[in-house]
Simulated scan of single mutants.
Amino acid sequence: MLYPFIMLLILLSTVDLSKQNVTDNILMSLSKGITYFEKQGTHINLDSVVGYIILQGKTLMSGYIFYNTNLVCLSDLYESLSTAVSSLQDTDSKYFKEFEPLLDSSFWSLPAEWSSIDPSLSYTSSRTMECYDEHLSDKCMTLLLGTWKDNGTPCIITKSCRDIMTQFGCLHYFLSHHLLYFMIGSMKGCSRMFKGDMRLSCINITVEHYQRIYNIMKSNQDIFRNGLPGQMQDIFIENILLCGLVGFSDFYKLDWIQSVLLWQYQEVGCFGKEEDLKHLFIYLLDVPHKRVKKREKTLKDGCSSHITGVAVSALGGFLNYYLSEQDKTKMPLI
């Protein structure tokens, strides 16, 4: 069944952060990002398609379509997503089968309520080397999803996955993927298994407890304080997306969203500059045990597939949060 029309607001053709309402900027950016996806969707990798699926299924469909009278209808996103998913099935069939559940918008859920990070759950020390590689991370997630083999049993938590996913002191991508692991387990319905398994371990931790670990916020604060270097933009926006999905409104900061909006190529609508991607790959490959994105790719016009998908989804999260809060207060956003 086709989704209802998606209505987006466009007031100007360029972003003017000092004069325009933040929601206008977000909607304008999303409009351009969706137009880009309609043209390049068959070339975008699975991680990026997931970002657009979260955007389409859980953010823009939240009912805030009458915010302003100057609206434009973008009803082709659903069709473009279907085409992109079919393309993934043909071009990367193994990875597609392993993570196919994430391509269903019903898999993802909006937070029932907003909460704040608890600084007391921060750990004080960090490792000098990263914790695990992407292959092991993917394997542990497929064990939760039940896609580790045909008709596989879901919610399997092996000792090696438990140990690596509850390891403290991890940084950057590894910390965010620890959170993603618990998110997937919770959305798949594995929470009871998590609790039972954790009682057997030396780490007294639950899904909710782990999600509240403060270090992801600390990581983003440090990245922002250091001027958002190009090689760190990807993890910065990934943290906003994941923590926003969990329900932490702390990550929806106006100065952060203003920075993300400036990363968009205004002419074509994608995110992630080519020169920044070069710095990102040097950063990942030059340091031992860093997570290397196996399926990251540079798209037409020198844009990052991963950053583009994650950025539009995170912006949709910003939009959902700010508009829901405005509904409660009936006050201007800025």
Rank of each mutant, 00 (worst) to 15 (best):
residue 10 I to A: 12
residue 11 L to H: 07
residue 12 L to N: 13
residue 12 L to C: 07
residue 15 V to M: 12
residue 16 D to K: 05
residue 17 L to I: 04
residue 19 K to D: 02
residue 21 N to R: 09
residue 22 V to S: 06
residue 29 S to M: 11
residue 35 T to M: 13
residue 41 G to K: 03
residue 49 V to K: 07
residue 53 I to W: 04
residue 55 L to E: 00
residue 66 F to R: 10
residue 67 Y to H: 05
residue 71 L to C: 01
residue 75 S to K: 10
residue 75 S to D: 14
residue 81 L to G: 04
residue 82 S to N: 13
residue 86 S to Q: 14
residue 100 E to T: 09
residue 103 L to W: 00
residue 108 W to G: 03
residue 112 A to I: 05
residue 119 P to R: 03
residue 120 S to H: 03
residue 120 S to W: 01
residue 130 E to H: 13
residue 148 W to D: 15
residue 152 G to P: 12
residue 155 C to T: 11
residue 155 C to S: 06
residue 157 I to E: 05
residue 159 K to Q: 06
residue 164 I to Q: 11
residue 175 L to A: 09
residue 179 L to G: 01
residue 183 M to I: 11
residue 186 S to R: 11
residue 188 K to Q: 11
residue 189 G to L: 03
residue 190 C to I: 06
residue 191 S to R: 12
residue 194 F to K: 03
residue 194 F to W: 09
residue 196 G to F: 10
residue 198 M to A: 14
residue 198 M to N: 03
residue 200 L to S: 07
residue 201 S to A: 07
residue 214 Y to L: 00
residue 216 I to A: 10
residue 217 M to Q: 07
residue 223 I to N: 02
residue 232 M to D: 14
residue 240 I to P: 07
residue 241 L to F: 15
residue 242 L to E: 06
residue 244 G to F: 03
residue 246 V to Y: 07
residue 250 D to G: 00
residue 251 F to H: 00
residue 253 K to Q: 14
residue 256 W to F: 12
residue 258 Q to I: 02
residue 261 L to Y: 05
residue 263 W to I: 05
residue 265 Y to C: 13
residue 271 F to Y: 15
residue 273 K to T: 08
residue 273 K to W: 13
residue 275 E to T: 11
residue 278 K to V: 14
residue 282 I to T: 08
residue 282 I to W: 10
residue 283 Y to F: 12
residue 286 D to N: 12
residue 288 P to F: 07
residue 294 K to N: 09
residue 294 K to S: 14
residue 295 R to N: 15
residue 296 E to L: 12
residue 296 E to K: 01
residue 316 G to R: 04
residue 322 Y to E: 06
residue 331 M to K: 15
